[in-house]
Design a protein around this nucleic acid. Structure first.
Lengths: 133, 133
DNA sequence: CTTGACCTTCCTGTAACTAGAAACTTTACC
DNA sequence: GGTAAAGTTTCTAGTTACAGGAAGGTCAAG
């Protein structure tokens, strides 16, 4: 398979696949003309990566997951731990965004949104306490 | 004020403040020795920026907010629109994270997390449908 | 006078790509 | 067979919002 076919089938852009090769996540063979030649195993790896990325795993995590996937002597505890940490991190981000959302939604609600300059949003941003010297 | 004092009082690291100067968000004067000299207005701008950043606004948005803040003839509608777009974006991110969280939490729940290799998490990642040629 | 705390600029690195340029190969069509 | 389009390669640079660190100037205290 050439890169565009494997890209289509794995659901990833060719640019992304070249990037993954550059950082050693996949190692396709090369044809005589220099074109990358992907086998079924490469395709599955790429699909695996795409799926892991869609769950928000970093590429570093993806590398570890791929190693675990290919290590048939792995302990599922290792996978669970990695996924658990990621889950915790996702929860943290959600909390952070929800806090932002709460404040911001309130401010937007309070703003008249007309032609006048008075604006509770700007007032709030400007009302940050500044430490005295 | 020198940079470390304004940093302390605005609640931002000096590196961040230098960066903000570099991209033109603040324009402190310079003393004869080359040191940056911040006035109260600079301090308030920086605190404003810190607050806006903490609500997740991009630096580009911060620049616009700062311009609106300083434009006494502004229409609050413009501020509300900017904040509204940001709110929508935050909502989008929250939804995305919650979807990830749902899938991931389920998988982590299903995984025994022991010494055996069987792992529903990896199974799920590997079970991505691959398009046929 | 020296030491240590500040300050300066400049360069590099981060994450995960994306865009685009210049050059090669292959494929399709006439 | 010629040529033009499509596909491929490598390379560089840009994105976001800084952080880390090096080399060197400055200032206040003892």
């Amino acid at each position: 398979m050439n890169i565009s076919e494997v890209a289509e089938r794995a659901g990833l852009p060719p640019k992304t696949i070249r990037h993954y090769e550059e950082i050693g996540l996949v190692r396709p063979l090369r044809a005589e003309n220099g074109y990358r030649q992907f086998c079924d195993s490469d395709l599955h790896k790429l699909a695996f990566l795409g799926r892991a990325r869609s769950l928000g795993f970093s590429l570093d995590d993806c590398r570890s997951l791929l190693e675990l996937y290919e290590d048939h002597g792995r302990a599922s505890a290792d996978v669970k731990a990695l996924a658990g940490h990621h889950l915790t991190e996702i929860d943290r981000k959600i909390e952070e965004l929800i806090a932002m959302r709460r404040t911001l939604a309130h401010l937007v609600d309070c703003c008249a949104g007309d032609g006048r300059p008075d604006c509770p949003i700007l007032d709030n941003l400007a009302a940050v306490p500044v430490l005295k010297p």
